[in-house]
Simulated assay, not measured.
Amino acid sequence: MRRFEFAVDREHARAVNEIVADLRRLRVLALAAAGLFGVGTGYLIWLNHPWSYLLAVAFALGAATALFIGLWTPHRGRVDKLYTVGELVPAVVSETSDKATTLLALVDLAKPNSDGPRYALVTRTVRTLPGHHGRPGERVPAVTVRIDRAPTSMGDLRQTVSAIPIAWATRDLNIIERARKAIREVEWQLLTDNLELAAKVRRVDAKRLLLDPQQLPDELRSYAT
């Protein structure tokens, strides 16, 4: 797995990293829900009816679940960790508008014990892209965010892999350029050649498009670099 080490600008990341912002909103909503469920539990117990006790148990479980999410979310959204554990991958601007930019990224869905890589195209729509011009075809180095929701590992592919720009974690244009150069030209070229597939990726339910290994360049058919 290709790592890219750099000093994360936490202040910058908190301001522009959309994953951090989304997790922050999730935490607020979860804690608010925990409070409401807690009040509801107390009220149902106060009613002192058989049916209210049954509902109180359900409300209490809801409060516990929401509280767990609210307390766990900050650990999930640590900016440094996102960029430390993620794999450096290429992404290319595929579409722009006044309000958002769509990135097409090349990611490896294979799990560590797999025989070889399984490349796929994924898209991400971002509201901000500092350090970039946002022109179609522009190269945007990114890191993967991997999520396996299943409690046990199933199959050889990860369920969900997304990509977040390096530019969400640093203001330093030299770092962005260094990350860009650390990605092989064959990967950038593969994305450039498949830009028209971004619209198709957005339409599929899985939000990813697996690439046929037999149609990949030789350099991408194994883990060797």
Rank of each mutant, 00 (worst) to 15 (best):
152 T>Y: 09
112 P>D: 04
14 R>V: 07
44 L>Q: 10
8 V>P: 11
48 N>L: 07
96 T>K: 11
31 L>R: 11
211 L>M: 11
75 H>W: 07
169 A>D: 08
65 T>P: 07
76 R>F: 13
104 L>S: 05
190 L>C: 03
217 P>T: 05
40 G>M: 11
104 L>E: 02
97 S>K: 09
23 L>I: 07
71 L>D: 14
177 E>H: 00
38 G>R: 04
70 G>I: 15
66 A>E: 06
224 A>N: 07
94 S>M: 10
118 R>Q: 15
42 G>V: 10
199 A>D: 13
43 Y>V: 14
35 G>L: 08
139 R>Y: 04
183 I>V: 05
142 A>W: 00
154 M>A: 07
5 E>R: 12
70 G>Y: 12
48 N>R: 13
35 G>M: 10
203 R>V: 15
65 T>L: 08
156 D>V: 09
218 D>T: 09
44 L>S: 14
76 R>N: 11
119 Y>E: 03
88 L>I: 00
206 A>M: 02
221 R>W: 04
225 T>F: 15
56 A>G: 14
98 D>H: 06
149 R>G: 00
174 N>H: 04
203 R>G: 06
44 L>K: 12
7 A>Q: 08
125 T>W: 02
96 T>V: 09
181 K>I: 03
152 T>V: 14
189 Q>T: 15
157 L>T: 02
94 S>A: 13
101 T>W: 08
134 G>C: 11
131 G>A: 10
62 G>P: 12
172 D>V: 13
210 L>R: 07
136 P>Y: 14
188 W>K: 03
37 F>I: 04
208 R>Q: 12
145 V>R: 09
92 V>D: 03
121 L>T: 15
39 V>T: 06
21 A>N: 10
120 A>Y: 02
58 A>D: 06
13 A>K: 11
46 W>S: 13
175 I>W: 04
92 V>C: 07
197 L>H: 06
52 S>E: 07
6 F>L: 03
182 A>P: 14
46 W>T: 04
186 V>W: 12
158 R>S: 01
210 L>G: 15
38 G>N: 13
132 H>P: 05
141 P>I: 01
147 I>A: 00
186 V>M: 05
164 I>P: 01
206 A>T: 03
170 T>Q: 05
142 A>Q: 00
99 K>G: 01
188 W>E: 01
